[in-house]
Design a protein around this nucleic acid. Structure first.
Lengths: 185, 185
DNA sequence: TTTTTAATTGATCGTCGATCAATTCCCCTA
DNA sequence: TAGGGGAATTGATCGACGATCAATTAAAAA
């Protein structure tokens, strides 16, 4: 499969050194065939990154299943764990930017959105019935919070600042916000 | 100045379309001279991104100065404000990754670290005397929190999820964490 | 002026994304 | 079985990129 091999190549060399030609060579096709299938370089990257999202969602669902009763911790550990285990592929999600005139195919948005859906559900479960309505917005905010910590962890910013346990920081922030949400509604 | 013109080119076209050749052409030098000065493409990007950090720090210091008494709000607004006003240059900071065998020159680290120093100082001022020691670590965490929100704002993730005021979310998270820190020490 | 050093140039290389006329493959019909 | 036609595949070709370096020009020292 083109996407599977493309994903492997991304995992091997990272976004900056990724090339469509090399993917074609690895799978034994010509560069022309690859462009007939995907149309543009951007569409190939989109397909690879959507695959990363799907694998990530599976990874996190698995972490939730086997993570014991502290599901918020499992969620954060799943976020960080996947990023660490799949540095290059994970980074490529955020390294790639669509040109302003190109839009993401809706089916990719749907697949990628499932990761957020998982988080919304867990945040909902962590909140009392009275503030369920706030769950989606709070969940988005907590994903952003964890993402910021994970990004600084992966790109070395935290190491540069002498921070040794970025995930603990992220988890602490998430717990604070959840507990603040519980008392304020 | 090579760096100033390079910075403008980055602001104009963004990281993906940036080219050293175009910078040389814009400044009226040959591509060879540019490579004699910077050695590699990576070093040129580093210089441009460090300039972005310096401009960013100045921008935030200015926001603090003219932001009234709510200095935490001024800090967050400064973070988001610069990113919005300088999308391409700001994004380039996080789009660029050094190859594993290349290290950042220390003088660049120092200049870039000043942004964090400003935040640490403000967090310290927002905490009671008893927990000043926690200020640096909490400040790093809050920068990561705001960064996550700002990144999702800039790259469209928040818009895709229907979020209309990412900065308000970030500010709410920061206030929660500061108030939690105040009561726990 | 002459000599030495420094700065600047741009042709050249290999690789990239992208294109498309030419070719190959495969299935259907007579 | 022969052959016709649509679909899939190819790779040479293009312009642009990062990078190199022998040749050239400019500046400083003698």
């Amino acid at each position: 499969m083109l996407i599977v091999e493309g994903h492997k190549h991304m995992a091997d060399v990272g976004f900056a050194r990724f090339s469509a030609r090399e993917v074609a060579k690895r799978i034994g096709y010509s560069i022309g065939t690859l462009y007939n299938v995907f149309g543009t370089y951007d569409q190939l990257i989109i397909a690879i990154n959507t695959r990363t999202f799907v694998l990530w969602t599976t990874y996190i669902r698995n972490a939730l299943e086997k993570g014991g009763e502290d599901r918020i911790r499992a969620l954060v550990e799943g976020y960080f764990g996947f990023a660490h285990t799949n540095r290059n592929a994970w980074m490529a999600i955020y390294d790639h930017h669509l040109p302003p005139d190109v839009t993401m195919p809706p089916e990719h948005d749907v697949l990628r959105g499932q990761l957020t859906d998982v988080v919304v559900e867990e945040v909902r479960a962590a909140l009392p019935a009275a503030c369920q309505a706030e769950a989606p917005r709070l969940a988005r905010s907590l994903v952003a919070t964890v993402h910021g910590h994970c990004m600084f962890d992966i790109n070395g910013s935290f190491a540069l600042m002498g921070e040794k346990d970025p995930m603990a920081l992220a988890l602490a922030r998430v717990r604070e916000s959840l507990s603040a949400a519980r008392t304020s509604c």
